[in-house]
């Protein structure tokens, strides 16, 4: 492979990383908003949040991408730049999976904690912000880490729309060289390395967050905690 082709691959990595970071931010925002809304006391809010998760988990990420690229523009008369269209489609889809994680982790917090908040006459919002979320967030990190790898794999889908991400640059190199084994092996390896780095970062984050709420692994003598529901209940694996 010539250096020009490697440059193409580097650009592809850059696009993939950008897309990954942006859609991860959107997905995180969506999952917290929708996940918290599913514990709301008004049934209509719970229903709408549940409807959102069912719809976006029900469709395939690739169909969402097609929809955002082809159906939204004529329907609303405006068109998104490919990067934002991809971010929106991936963020909304994976946000629905993330919402289930958030809901599961919130449900796994000891009920006595919530009752304590009520007894101290905290408002629902204070309870969520000061009591439930700080304890639930560390439990969310392992499933979120899996979801992040799924999201990374999902970013490859935008190459179908002609966005110049890593998978797309692989196709270009294949066309240039008329030879595919080498380049696709490199592309797969690069994805694997990115996924490996992501899981490492998330593991570090988990350790830090757990230490923040006094659940550091070195501390002994604390009673064993229940596993968060979200860890197993979430059906990750879709969409990528």
């Amino acid at each position: 492979m010539t250096s020009g082709l490697w440059e193409l691959v580097l650009q592809g990595i850059w696009v993939t990383v950008q897309l990954l970071v942006l859609s991860a931010l959107v997905a995180t925002a969506v999952s917290f908003v929708v996940g918290v809304a599913r514990t709301h006391r008004l049934w209509i809010v719970r229903f709408l949040a549940g409807f959102y998760t069912e719809v976006f988990r029900g469709t395939s990420a690739l169909i969402m991408i097609f929809w955002v690229f082809f159906v939204l523009p004529p329907a609303f008369g405006w068109q998104l730049v490919p990067m934002w269209a991809g971010t929106l489609a991936l963020g909304l889809t994976y946000g629905a999976y993330g919402a289930e994680i958030v809901r599961g982790a919130l449900g796994a917090v000891d009920p006595a904690q919530r009752e304590g908040g009520i007894a101290l006459s905290f408002t629902p919002w204070q309870r969520m912000r000061l009591i439930l979320l700080p304890q639930a967030v560390p439990e969310m990190i392992p499933p979120f880490s899996n979801l992040l790898v799924e999201l990374l794999k999902g970013t490859a889908l935008v190459s179908v729309m002609g966005m110049g991400d890593l998978a797309f640059s692989g196709n270009l190199v294949r066309l240039a060289l008329q030879e595919s084994a080498e380049i696709y092996t490199y592309i797969l390896l690069i994805y694997f390395v990115i996924a490996f780095l992501l899981t490492r970062v998330m593991r570090g984050l988990e350790r830090q967050l757990k230490a923040g709420v006094g659940k550091a692994p070195r501390k002994t003598g604390t009673p064993p905690r229940r596993a968060p529901e979200g860890a197993d209940a979430v059906k990750v694996g879709g969409g990528a």
Partner: peptide
């Protein structure tokens, strides 16, 4: 498990 299915499809289809 940690690499995109799409790229694996391309790999099998072209290689």
């Amino acid at each position: 498990r940690n690499t995109p299915l799409l790229v694996q499809l391309f790999f099998l289809f072209y290689v």
